[in-house]
Computed example of a mutant assay.
Amino acid sequence: MRSGSLLALAGVLSACVLTGCNPLPARAAAPTYGYQVVQRFPHSTQSYTEGFFFLDGLFYEGTGMEGQSALMAIAPSTGQPIQKRDLPQQYFGEGIVDWGANIYEWTWKSHVCFVYDRFSFRPVKQFTYTGEGWGMTHDKASIITSDGTSTLRFRNPATFAETRHIVAHDGPKKIEMLNELEFVKGEIYANVWHDDRIARISPKDGAVLGWIDLHGILPDSQRVNAESVLNGIAYDAQHDRLFVTGKQWPAIFEIKLVPKK
């Protein structure tokens, strides 16, 4: 390294000591979008929604709470499960994701991820991992997971081992408490726990590309308690439909994004 470069580096390090350095890029804050409700579907207020996706005309849902956790395939018209598998009593179910002919369902603090045959819900295998399990989705090559922090991890579907990770940020600000996830048109949509907003995250570098403000979509009077929060995103790629729901919400909403006034 040349002496001029050394002097420049020394100046940068001195500035870091005096003012603090933030490794995240200082971009402008991401734009915010509103919503229009297109259609409303029934949803059980018994379902503590932790995982959610749409496939082949059905909603698939993973629910939480020890003794109440389950994987379900649900008919949109009735909100009733047409297929269900309960988790053993000791597990708190979390995110779910489809991968080929299988469905993965992991757990909050038990470090166990169950893998089922998607058509019969028969157990196929299971994985272990470190840290907490929150949300799951996938792109073409990886399973993408959240753990309640600002970090999203990309995992090998064959081993569940992490291959890389990104940190979600809106400009220089990290976005913590990332929860249920969905991959939509090349972006990762993420619920933020206890926030009626969805972050639209770049899978390349974690930059928040936009926000979806869902305040008011379900009145407080229709929420069971303070934990009945927004937590469920599903996308119907065939018909370009976006759905959202929450823990113990009475409805699933199909929404259309609109510019926020």
Rank of each mutant, 00 (worst) to 15 (best):
W134S: 04
G133M: 06
G51D: 01
F119R: 05
G79R: 04
G79A: 11
T19D: 12
A75S: 12
S69V: 08
I82F: 01
E66S: 15
F59R: 02
P81S: 15
N102T: 08
S110Q: 15
T63G: 08
Q126H: 15
T128Q: 13
E132D: 13
T32H: 14
Q39V: 04
G67M: 09
D86H: 11
P25I: 08
P23R: 13
H43R: 01
C113R: 00
H43S: 09
M65H: 11
G131D: 15
R40M: 05
S44L: 07
G64C: 10
Q46S: 14
E94Q: 10
P76L: 05
P123K: 03
K84N: 12
W108C: 08
F119I: 03
Y33Q: 15
Y104A: 10
T45F: 11
Y60V: 00
S69G: 09
F53L: 10
Y116H: 11
M72Y: 00
V124S: 02
L87A: 10
I96V: 15
R40N: 12
G131Y: 02
P31W: 09
A29K: 11
T19R: 13
Y60A: 00
V37I: 14
V97P: 02
T128C: 05
G62Q: 03
Q80C: 06
A73Y: 01
Y60N: 01
P76F: 11
R85G: 01
D98Y: 06
W99T: 06
Q68W: 10
W108F: 15
L58P: 00
G131N: 12
V112N: 08
G51V: 01
F127A: 07
K125R: 15
T49D: 07
V115W: 08
T130D: 12
D86I: 01
I74P: 00
T78P: 03
F41T: 01
W108M: 07
Y129W: 11
T19S: 13
Q80N: 05
M72H: 00
Q80Y: 02
G62T: 06
T19H: 14
V124F: 00
Q68S: 14
H111F: 06
T128R: 14
Q126D: 09
W108T: 03
W134M: 07
P31Y: 13
L71E: 02
G131P: 04
T78R: 05
G57E: 09
A28T: 14
E132R: 04
L24T: 05
P31Q: 12
E50M: 04
F119A: 06
H111W: 05
S69Y: 03
S77K: 13
N102Y: 12
R27Q: 13
F41W: 12
D56Q: 13
Y116D: 04
T19M: 09
I96M: 02
E66T: 13
E105I: 02
A73Q: 09
D117S: 04
Q46I: 11
A101W: 02
P88T: 07
G34P: 09
R122W: 01
V124C: 01
F119Y: 08
L87W: 06
P31E: 10
